[in-house]
């Protein structure tokens, strides 16, 4: 196992981490507000498809990325109308939404895109420290990687240092108490879902942008669901999500690295493909002490309107 292989493993692990991390950040926001967003996979699909569609016709990465995130925000509005306003079952709605997204994005990519590709992200070399052997290669990542790191800090700041974040967490734990204290549970959950889904969709867009620039409905391959696990293991802490997502990135990167490591070569490649999912199960099992915010998954009704069926 040569040094180059390890460096390549770390570097591509960091690259593969980005979509999962963005999805996890979005999910953290939703769950801290008391909404279990199982539709995260569908949101990623919409983000990826929108990025590919806009990128194919308008050759500007930043605009396409923003369009992807905006699609996520729109999805957030739709989902909050279902989860929050109508109070439908969050698990069931999320799953159905994912099936819906599979269908819509599949149709969209088949009808609109054909073989068109969007432009892709390119790794960006740091001017000075990029020359340090080893370290330089590891930090040679695309722009979105650095933006994502900033977003980790931003989400943490939002949740732990602002009134909005405090209110959000109150609503996720004790919506009735929060409502009695004068907070608008609905509005807080709307905002969390809109912002959260925008981040998730950005993750989906990254997935397309960091690979071939072509959108496939298979491209998410359960990464949204992996993010559901990451959030539990990271205990709803954005920095924790960073560390855990990196582990998942590495477990994905092992697939290509295993070919270059002699004693891992006989293991079939399908095992490496399945590894991230197995790691998720084990990680969730190990961190079983981790507790969901109390109100997660439970639709909230305003007490005064409950008599009106």
């Amino acid at each position: 196992m040569s040094r180059d292989v390890v460096i390549a493993l770390f570097a591509s692990g960091l690259g593969l981490m980005v979509p999962i991390l963005l999805a996890s950040l979005g999910e953290i926001l939703c769950e801290q507000a008391g909404v279990l967003n199982v539709g995260i996979e569908g949101t990623m699909l919409f983000g990826g498809a929108t990025f590919a569609a806009v990128g194919a016709y308008y050759d500007n990465l930043a605009v396409a990325m923003l369009a992807g995130a905006l699609a996520g925000a729109v999805v957030g509005v739709i989902l909050s109308a279902l989860y929050v306003r109508r109070g439908t079952d969050q698990i069931v709605t999320g799953l159905l939404f994912t099936i819906f997204a599979l269908g819509v994005t599949g149709t969209l990519s088949a009808q609109l895109l054909g073989g068109k590709t969007a432009s892709t992200l390119t790794p960006w070399k740091f001017p000075l420290i990029g020359r340090i052997p080893g370290f330089g290669e590891v930090i040679k990542q695309n722009q979105l990687f650095w933006i994502t790191l900033l977003l980790v800090v931003a989400v943490h700041y939002l949740l732990r240092r602002t009134w909005w974040g405090l209110h959000l967490r109150a609503v996720g734990e004790q919506p009735h108490a929060a409502s009695s204290a004068g907070l608008n549970v609905w509005r807080l959950r709307y905002s969390a879902l809109i912002l959260g889904n925008a981040l998730v969709a950005l993750g989906g867009a990254t997935l397309v942008a960091a690979s071939s620039g072509r959108f496939f409905t298979e491209s998410t391959a359960g990464r949204g669901y992996i993010a559901l696990g990451v959030v539990v293991v990271a205990r709803w802490n954005p920095y924790g999500a960073l560390a855990v997502s990196w582990l998942f990135g590495i477990s994905q990167a092992l697939r290509s690295a295993a070919e270059q490591i002699a004693f891992l070569d006989p293991v079939p490649v399908d095992f490496w493909s399945a590894l991230p999912y197995i790691v998720t199960i084990i990680a969730v099992l190990v961190s079983r002490g981790s507790r969901y915010p109390a109100a997660v998954g439970i639709p909230w009704r305003e007490p005064s309107t409950s008599r009106r069926k």
Binding site: L82, R86, T88, D89, V92, T93, L96, F97, I99, F100, L102, G103, V104, T105, G106, T107, A110, T217
Partner: peptide, 16 residues
Amino acid sequence: SLGNVLIATFLILLLV
């Protein structure tokens, strides 16, 4: 893929 959209839309509306 429209088949999936059809099924999912119908069920989401039944939920709503």
